[in-house]
């Protein structure tokens, strides 16, 4: 049995006086690649932010690697939504990736050439070597997302949280990102991804966490990602195209 890397018990959180998450319980095993799936407003991003102490929790406990978040921060990587930062910031792609190393570099020190090389390697891995010197606002959405992924790679974490890394990216980037995620999983890392495209869930993830303000169902994709559970998660707001669940489309996408 694989090690438990994340254990969440009775977690709840609110946003502007509305309870967004309540009674959230789940456990994640090492080496799993989990898709967090649910309708808009289900609290997917809030869940990640609450786990990472970026948003206050009301109740509950979160346990990483059998320890508290503060003690194991360095083993956790985070890829925020692309829209959460200002891409007009005066910096280039290589520099953004190097930021992933700031925790390791420590106070009062500047990134060395070795750190820059490490960042460059990560960019190369994401197929972005030619864009290292490019100002970040000059990159397309997909390229920006790859820069974020490269930054997560240099963090060299054991557990990754990614918030909608596949939104608004081109097909080539989607493929590149999924290849990397599967590679991470193969090397024993654990990855949790907020995902909104129901049609690709079965191809991309081995575990699914269906979320609508609380955990509707969590487990292997095979067992959990059923028509019945999806309908329950989306509260009936779903159009079934044909009979196959691979053709479902949430009808209330914003």
């Amino acid at each position: 049995m694989a090690e438990t890397v994340l254990k969440v018990e009775n977690l709840s959180a609110s946003y502007r006086k509305n309870t967004v998450l309540y009674d959230v319980n789940f456990e994640v095993k090492a080496g799993s690649l989990t898709g967090i799936v649910g309708p808009n407003g289900a609290g997917k991003s809030t869940l990640i932010k609450t786990l990472l102490d970026l948003h206050p929790s009301l109740t509950g406990s979160v346990n990483f690697f059998g320890s508290s978040f503060k003690k194991v921060k360095k083993r956790i990587g985070y890829v925020p939504q692309r829209g959460s930062v200002d891409w007009d910031f005066p910096t280039n792609a290589l520099d953004v990736v190097t930021m992933g190393l700031y925790g390791k570099i420590g106070w009062l020190k500047r990134p060395s050439r070795q750190h820059k090389e490490q960042a460059y390697e990560a960019l190369k891995k994401m197929g972005m070597a030619d864009y290292a010197d490019r100002q970040i606002s000059q990159l397309s959405g997909g390229q920006q997302q790859r820069v974020f992924l490269a930054r997560a790679l240099v963090q060299d974490a054991d557990l990754y949280f990614m918030d909608e890394p596949l939104v608004g990216v081109d097909a080539q980037t989607e493929l590149a990102i999924m290849t990397i995620l599967k590679e991470l999983k193969k090397s024993g890392k654990t990855v949790m991804v907020v995902h909104h495209d129901l049609q690709t869930v079965e191809n991309y993830f081995d575990h699914v966490l269906l979320l609508n303000r609380t955990v509707i169902k969590h487990g292997t994709t095979e067992q959990v990602f059923t028509k019945e559970n999806i309908a329950k998660t989306y509260g009936g707001n779903i159009r079934w195209i044909g009979e196959e669940k691979s053709h479902v489309v949430p009808s209330l996408e914003q």
Binding site: K73, M99, Y102, G103, W107
Partner: peptide
């Protein structure tokens, strides 16, 4: 000067800064 890289990451991506322990 002494907190140059910290100011940079705090301005660009405060969430990441928090996770990196700043």
């Amino acid at each position: 000067l002494i907190f140059y890289k910290e100011w940079k990451i705090l301005s660009f991506d405060p969430a990441l800064a928090a996770i990196l322990g700043i």
